[in-house]
């Protein structure tokens, strides 16, 4: 009986011994560097940040005086207002994109690229074994198909985790090199239990990264399922990326008209909507979204497992 750890080790070997994987890592490094240089070139430092914050406070107050605002959005505005007032009181500059922390927070946008890479790896994990013909030698070992599928899934997620860590490290290094680390002690202002609190910026960055991962995990799982069901690499990549780019738009359109749109996958993958913004459909909460994600997660993995376990290997 082979242990799951050796199986994962095998899958890792098959991921990292390939040129494509290192090409992706190179692209990731390039993206962080390019991002930093573009921000450095284009960002204009406001002459007087206090005046800007003050004018923003005025704008928010004006907006709040309107009657018909949705409740969630109103709350959000109120919180931002409090935070801005706190800034003026305590002389804390807003985090600008051309600072170490500002850049790290923005680097979370590059997670979309990691999602794409993870889709490619997850999609290839099962499908490639079929197209290479190696599936036959893989499945005649003392390891159940369940274990093999699980090891592949875990290896794909480990790849995503590894890429996230690399993104964090690349961004930190690039951010420090390009923008300097003078502002490293800057706090993050959050609104909690009716009061503004100062939090560690590192904690905030980790939180932003984590919230951005819902998309990543769900799309990787989706691609993995398609790969296990149809044994076709391109189809799995194509469907998953198509869903990744078109899904949120379609869901947003549906959400404007129908309430049931909140049960769709893409209504729930963007968890940052609960931290800074308004939910897609009124009444949605973080725990609702997490529940929905869990349901989709179980369905995707269940289908992949059921089909892979019973399939006749005739490749």
């Amino acid at each position: 009986m082979s242990s799951i750890f050796s199986l994962i080790q095998n899958e890792n070997m098959k991921i990292y011994r390939r040129f494509g994987t290192w090409f992706m890592i190179g692209l990731l490094a390039l993206a962080t560097l390019a991002g930093a240089l573009i921000i450095k070139a284009t960002h204009k430092e406001p002459e007087n940040w206090k005046a800007e914050v003050a004018s923003e406070i005025k704008r928010m107050e004006a907006e709040l005086s309107e009657e018909k605002l949705p409740k969630m959005y109103k709350n959000y505005l109120k919180q931002q207002l409090k935070i801005n007032e706190y800034r003026l009181e305590h002389n804390i500059k807003p985090v600008a994109p051309n600072t170490f922390w500002g850049y790290l927070v923005d680097s979370a946008d590059i997670i979309a690229l990691i999602t794409l890479f993870t889709i490619i790896v997850a999609a290839g994990s099962v499908a490639s074994e079929f197209s290479w013909g190696t599936i036959k030698l893989l499945l005649i070992r003392p390891a159940s198909r369940t274990k093999i599928l699980l090891s592949k899934y875990i290896a794909a997620l480990l790849f995503a985790l590894c890429m996230l860590l690399l993104l964090f490290i690349f961004s930190a290094v690039v951010g420090a090199a390009v923008f300097g680390i003078e502002n490293i002690r800057e706090p993050y202002l959050a609104y909690q239990n009716g009061a503004v609190v100062e939090r560690s910026m590192l904690f905030h960055v980790v939180q932003v990264y984590a919230l951005n991962c819902a998309d990543l995990v769900m799309m990787a799982t989706f691609a993995f399922m398609i790969s296990a069901v149809f044994r076709n690499h391109s189809l799995a990549i194509g469907l998953a990326t198509f869903a990744l780019f078109v899904g949120p738009q379609v869901t947003a359109l549906l959400a404007m008209k129908f309430d049931w749109a909140k049960y769709l996958l893409f209504a729930n993958t963007n968890l940052t909507q609960y931290i800074d913004g308004t939910p897609l459909v009124e009444g949605m909460t973080m725990s609702f979204s997490l529940m929905m994600l869990l349901v989709y997660f179980v369905i995707f993995n269940g289908i992949a497992w059921l089909i892979f376990r019973k399939r006749d290997i005739a490749a």
């Binding site: 009986m1 082979s2 098959k14």
Partner: peptide
């Protein structure tokens, strides 16, 4: 070979 060796104790 290492790959297949890892799959059997």
């Amino acid at each position: 070979l290492l790959h297949y060796a890892r799959m059997t104790k």
